[in-house]
Write a protein that binds this DNA or RNA. Structure first.
Length: 440
RNA sequence: GGAGAGGUGUCUGAGUGGUCGAAAGAGCUGCACUCGAAAUGCAGUAUACGGUCUCCGUAUCGAGGGUUCGAAUCCCUCCCUCUCCGCCA
């Protein structure tokens, strides 16, 4: 959510953001509606407050009334005033609801250094790190490789879980958790607070993170646990698509001590995505699945664009180090306006080389949200002067598995059909090579 | 799943229709006293919003709705917490 005052004073920037991001659910002309509604809202607030002032005066003087006639007169005025007030309050409620609905669709305004563009083709490559590996034998994609080694089972995964279901087995299961643990430990060593957050979350958290209202159907609704005998349903909880959601919700409606910021967290959680808009995309293998594990970094920092930029670069360094530790080749892209999503102020993706498809695949996504999420979640901090300021938030993937395994196993396959284990992960498996015959 | 108790400011805790944004105590801040500290005394100490913005107003006593000229207080619905029993990884 943007600050209403910002929208009122920078309508053109907001309109530009709506069109350059291609935001759903709102058009540039709605910004003018917002301005109109905001003016109406303020007028109605002033008016209702005046009416309430008079109501309170009446209530105050009514007992001091000298004569019954005077008292009756005041009661009559109070009754009439109550009706007027109710009408005005109803009007105000409507205006505020309309205003809130439009405001909830207003995207964040992208940073000045964000490339303007329509879709992923307009993203800008910032750097590449490492070398594309060369193979003197025909490379297999991870599906062929892992199915052949009996380390992954997509057929039974689909039998049990449905479309995009999978099993990780044997050394691959160990590699999965070993890599996650490696990344988790690395971030903890860097001073990030490790957090295992709930994956079942209330709706406000999805609004707070900026997933709602745009992502609606892509979120699994996990049910209504407090359904009663009359069939009346309680509050819906959803399966979080990322730990970012519960980690942002964690401090909702709280005022933090400014001297404690930046607050750095690393969350490990299962993630659930319906992938509604991606039915026909990446249907094979681990690249796009409905449930996976992810280690996510989240930072809450001061409302300072310089500090936020430093934090974004730190988040990038952390994730890149992990990829470098795994000896994987990747590139960093600056996301263009059309590909960055509504809540983002600035966003980078890391795409890792995947020999099986002969191309890069997104493995990390880093965002500076400015105060967009914190305003929706009402997360503030007190500064040195005791003022309450809406905080800034940032996040980046540390490691998402099994997607990253696509890159890891494909890049480390050998002519003999084995998979080399990166040195840093060897302690988790107790071996440096996963042999084709080693799977049960 | 069964039974009971309760949700008031930073905390403890009074308050059962108007004089209550809310007693009292604690805490915190400032001042005084002191070589300094403790103790003591005095004063201040919620948040959000609106305005004619060093001041005034409005709202907030778990949330929402209702009754009333007027609600922390009465009524309804919901949420949450705690205790005991049962079940359970």
């Amino acid at each position: 959510m943007l600050d209403l005052h910002y929208v009122l004073t920078n309508p053109q920037k907001v309109k530009d953001a709506i069109s350059s991001k291609g935001v759903r659910g709102i058009s540039s002309s709605d910004v003018d509606t917002i301005i109109t509604l905001a003016n109406e809202q303020r007028a109605l607030v002033t008016e209702t407050q005046g009416l309430r002032t008079r109501r309170n005066e009446i209530a105050d003087t009514i007992q001091k009334a000298e004569t019954p006639e005077e008292k009756q007169k005041l009661i009559a005025e109070g009754k009439a005033l109550k009706e007027t007030l109710q009408t005005k309050e109803a009007a105000l409620t409507t205006v505020e609801a309309d205003l809130f609905k439009l405001m909830s669709y207003v995207p964040n305004v992208p940073s000045d250094d964000t490339p303007i563009g329509k879709d992923e083709n307009d993203n800008v490559e910032i750097r590449t790190v490492g070398e594309k590996p060369t193979f003197d034998f025909p490379v297999k994609n991870h599906v062929e490789l892992l199915t052949g080694m009996d380390l992954a089972d997509f057929e039974r995964g689909t039998k049990v879980s449905g479309f995009r279901g999978y099993y990780l087995k044997g050394d691959l299961a160990m590699l999965h958790y070993g890599a996650l643990m490696y990344a988790f430990q690395k971030l903890v060593a860097k001073g990030y607070t490790p957090v295992i957050p709930p994956a079942l979350v209330k709706s406000f958290t999805l609004f707070g993170s900026g997933h709602h209202p745009w992502s609606g159907a892509d979120v699994y609704e996990a049910g209504r646990p407090d359904i009663d005998e009359t069939g009346k349903e309680g509050e819906v909880v959803s399966l979080a698509a990322t730990a970012e959601i519960p980690l942002m919700g964690m401090y909702a409606n709280e005022v933090l001590d400014g001297s404690q910021l930046p607050l750095k967290m690393v969350g490990l959680s299962p993630c659930y995505r319906r992938e509604i808009g991606s039915y026909s995309k990446d249907v094979k293998g681990f690249y796009r699945v409905h449930e996976f594990m992810k280690i996510e970094q989240v930072i809450l920092c001061h409302a300072d664009s310089k500090e936020a930029e430093e934090m974004l670069q730190e988040l990038m360094r952390n994730s890149e180090e992990i990829m470098q530790d795994f000896k994987l080749h990747y590139r960093v892209l600056a996301m263009c306006t059309g590909d960055m999503g509504e809540p983002q102020y600035k966003k980078y993706d890391i795409e890792t080389w995947m020999p099986g498809k002969g191309g890069y695949g997104e493995t990390h996504s880093a965002s500076n949200m400015s105060d967009f999420q914190c305003r929706r979640n009402n997360i503030r901090y007190t500064n040195k002067d005791g003022e309450r300021i809406v905080a800034y938030s940032l996040n980046n993937t540390a490691l998402a598995s099994p997607r990253f395994l696509v890159a890891l196993v494909e890049n480390n396959q050998t002519a003999e059909g084995h998979i080399k284990v990166p040195e840093v992960l060897q302690p988790f498996l107790g071996k440096d090579l996963i042999k084709a015959s080693s799977a049960p």
